[in-house]
Write a protein that binds this DNA or RNA. Structure first.
Length: 572
RNA sequence: CGGGGUGUAGCGCAGUUGGUAGCGCACGUGCUUUGGGAGCAUGGGGUCGGGGGUUCGAGUCCCUCCACCCCGACCA
């Protein structure tokens, strides 16, 4: 392709709306443009990158025995109402009505549609196992789209669903997908970590996320260098860090006028935050629960929701009125002793291991010190409900955990029977018994892969595409197109490379060398061939985008060298 | 959804006490130039986010709506 003809409106200045490198570079390098908040259109180069990623995903899905189908982006409301998710997703869905006032939504995910297909057309164990997938646009009306394609409202996803006769079968299907995912991300040139994840509103059992490590990632992951344990922040198990064996002292009431927050208490009493226990009042489904947690810790809302057997959306901090009713005091003085009404008391796992702590007195302007679990109060439930912190002991081996940020590019679940039960997707086993089909589901965000790849592969000049997903492999740059020798040699090379099936660009624009080099760097084409002063002697330069120094090559050596470089850098 | 901010040429921005809109880059044309974002000359491009109001006169003041961005909340 000729740059003089390619629709590639690169930008010299940084668009004000973009903050992170991938977003900036995708706009600058003319991969995409924004149409509306969280909605992007892809230009020729961006489209090629997506195609490359799509092809890798497709090859690996097919290799793993999955079969491609294509659902509709439009889903009738009744299907999602059948599973209950019409309300679970709620405002996250783009909803629409047809002329007869029938409700639909633009699919945020497709479990129900796939399950519906299977319940109609799969009846016997003889038809199982089966894994089918699609590559399709999904729609989620995110509250806050951001970071370009990283969190957009329209995005391309590969979603696969496995159907098995039993849990052992699911394990096999799941492991195949797991392996396929590793191959996909390896081939895309991404550095990633697989972490244990919470299943959340999706339901199901085992769940793993594929996280591309990046400091712009929105997810926090905890991992252990020693034993390999890794989990996302929501899931990461917390252990009791240290057990204090002080002698229990007697409870004292202390006057703490208008001292409400842990920070204020720390400076008022000159005692470390870890000697306090916070009492947080939450509401869920018209019930009230009090959560006790060490002063310097944070509650993990996912763990709390799971413990209460509700979704995260159902749990929220109680309003002031409720807090006053339950604690008989202003907000800021809640404690475990003397709560009124039907309040479940949950203590974080660390609480029983603490001694002589300070808690709210359930009386405005007072706290209690030397309070001890077991002697002074007992919780209805003791469970891990806090967020991990850097340095926590690994739940598997006890070494210190580290925290990092990641971009979630893939997520695989063992769903089990959640949707087959809800929609009645059953099969007849060899004994004639009707049983629910055991399902798994597996998602990959394709545009996110592109953005994540840029996050991990760029410098201050632009993108540095991994060979496997680069829009083109080679760019031929004649330094001066009005120099006949340079132009002719460049054209000849372009022609030879094209005929050999190489994906090659030629920058035949009548521009200064600096502009062309800067564009080539911005675009991130892996191999640049510069045809300059030595064109008369049939000598050109070959420079890798990733490397600093070029090498000189004779004209007739170029094709083989290029072929070699490409095949070295693409795994299949 | 709460808090903050911004809307002026394709991009980045300026616009004073209210007086009829400008700069850089980009774009067209001509000449010169040609190994890391050239120079000179010349030209085109604007419902100043929309609507309403105040005023002789509004990019500027007031009201209102909208869009977009950031922080938070939220997120299979």
């Amino acid at each position: 392709m000729r740059l003089s003809q390619l629709f590639i409106p690169t930008m010299r200045e940084v668009p004000a709306e973009a903050e992170i490198p991938s977003h900036i570079l995708m706009l600058k390098a003319a991969l995409m443009r924004k149409l509306a908040s969280g909605v992007y259109i892809y230009l020729p180069l961006g489209k090629r990158v997506l195609k490359k990623i799509e092809e890798i995903v497709r090859e690996e899905m097919d290799r793993a025995g999955a079969q491609e189908v294509l659902m509709s982006a439009i889903i009738p409301a009744e299907l999602l109402k059948e599973s209950g998710r019409w309300d679970v997703f709620g405002p996250e869905m783009f909803k629409l009505k047809d002329r007869n006032d029938r409700e639909f939504c633009l699919g945020p995910t497709h479990e129900e549609v796939f399950t519906d297909l299977i319940r109609n057309d799969v009846k016997s164990y003889r038809q199982l196992p089966l894994t089918i997938y699609q590559i399709q646009t999904k729609y989620r009306d995110e509250r806050r789209p951001r970071f370009g394609v990283m969190r957009s409202r329209e995005f391309i996803m590969k979603d696969a669903y496995s159907f098995d006769v039993d849990w052992d079968g699911l394990d096999v299907s799941f492991d195949k997908m797991y392996d396929a995912y590793c191959r996909i991300f390896d081939r895309c040139g991404l550095k990633y970590t697989v972490v244990e994840a919470d299943t959340g509103a999706m339901g199901g059992k085992d769940s793993k996320e594929f996280m591309v490590t990046s400091n712009v990632g929105e997810a926090v992951i905890a991992y252990c260098d020693n034993c390999g344990y890794a989990a996302n922040e929501e899931k990461a198990e917390c252990t009791v860090q240290n057990t204090i064996n002080e002698e229990m002292r007697s409870v004292e009431k202390i006057y703490t006028p208008n001292v409400k927050t842990i920070d204020e208490l720390v400076s008022h009493l000159n005692v470390d935050a870890e000697k306090f226990v916070k009492t947080l009042i939450y509401k869920y489904k018209d019930k009230v629960v009090a959560v006790l947690i060490r002063g310097d810790r944070e509650v993990n809302p996912v763990k709390l929701a799971n413990l209460l057997n509700v979704t995260e959306n159902d749990v929220e901090l109680a309003d002031e009125k409720t807090v006053k009713e339950v604690t008989s005091a202003d907000v800021g003085f809640a404690g475990p002793i003397g709560l009124k009404g039907d309040v479940m008391l949950i203590a974080d796992a660390e609480i029983p291991a603490m001694r002589n702590v300070i808690v709210g007195a359930n009386e405005t302007d007072y706290h209690l010190k030397n309070v001890n679990y077991g002697r002074d109060f007992k919780a209805d439930v003791v469970s891990d409900v806090r967020k991990v912190v850097d340095g926590d002991k690994c739940p598997k081996c006890g070494s210190p955990l580290k925290l990092d940020r990641g971009i979630e590019v893939g997520h695989i679940f063992k769903l089990g029977t959640k949707y087959s039960d809800a929609l009645g997707a059953n099969y007849i086993d060899e004994n004639g018994n009707e049983k629910p089909i055991i399902m798994g589901c597996y998602g990959i965000g394709l545009n996110r892969i592109a953005a994540a790849a840029i996050e991990q592969n760029h410098d201050d000049k632009g993108i540095i595409w991994p060979m496997s997903i680069a829009p083109y492999h080679v760019i031929v740059v004649p330094v001066n197109v009005s120099n006949e020798a340079q132009r002719d040699l460049a054209e000849k090379l372009y022609d030879e490379l094209s005929k050999a099936g190489i994906e090659v660009l030629i920058d035949d624009r009548d521009l200064r060398a600096g502009v062309k080099f800067n564009d080539a760097d911005l675009l991130g084409i892996p191999i640049r061939i510069t045809v300059g002063k030595k064109a008369e002697d049939k000598i050109v330069e070959l420079k890798l985008r990733r490397e600093e120094k070029p090498i000189e090559l004779k004209h007739d050596e170029v094709l083989n060298k290029v072929k070699e470089l490409i095949s070295e850098n693409i795994r299949s």
